[in-house]
Amino acid sequence: MSLTQIHDVFASVHEDGLNDLIEAFYKSRTRNFIYGTPDFAPSTTATITSIPAISFPGIPGGIQFAVAFRKPVVDLHPDSSGGSAVLPPQAGQFSLSANVILVVLCGGGKRDIDPTHGKPTGTGTVPKVEHTELEIHVRGSITSDGSSIGFQAEEIEIVDICPESLESVIECMMRMILNAALQNIRIPIPSLSLDAFSLTLTQGPTIEQDQVKVWGVI
């Protein structure tokens, strides 16, 4: 069976290539993976996105926190984990695993905190910092707006959190945060053919054989 089938052109990216693309995003636009309130990120830069603190009566400046995703790793169906995946991809799906670091400032004061590990990096009055690192597992599907492809998390699993209701709350939050972050990770469809042709999408994206596949007319 030909690759193009009934179409003019075909393009695919293997999961290894997709992870290279994600890494390229991670290196260049790290801010899409790291978010911090003003005490962590007074302004948005290429490496961190500034988000508002959670206002709460009686807490001056609100609750200061940061969320940082380490570089996610994607596995396209079929499962390449050898059976160890917490959420193995089903047909037409991807699985994604990443560590997320949650950092909270307990109390006010001068910060100089590196949100990737929650530890102070400078001198000054340092408030008490609490942080945790969670391993998240995601199952989702590839989306497309016709000109680019993106990622949509559908199920999320964070293991070893008790009670289960807390796990559900955190998973819900993480799914929302992750989907918001993933909205920014969009790969132009022409990139899948290295711009060799101006592909107008007619079928796909489809996940199969460890690849994201698209078909189109030139």
């Binding site: 179409h7 393009a11 990216v13 290894d16 290295l194 060799a196 030139i218």
Partner: peptide
């Protein structure tokens, strides 16, 4: 397997040529 694979049929290859 290659990271990226693109294929063009003869119709598309004609346009590329």
């Amino acid at each position: 397997m290659s990271d990226i694979l693109a294929a063009a049929d003869e119709n598309a290859a004609t346009k590329m040529v």
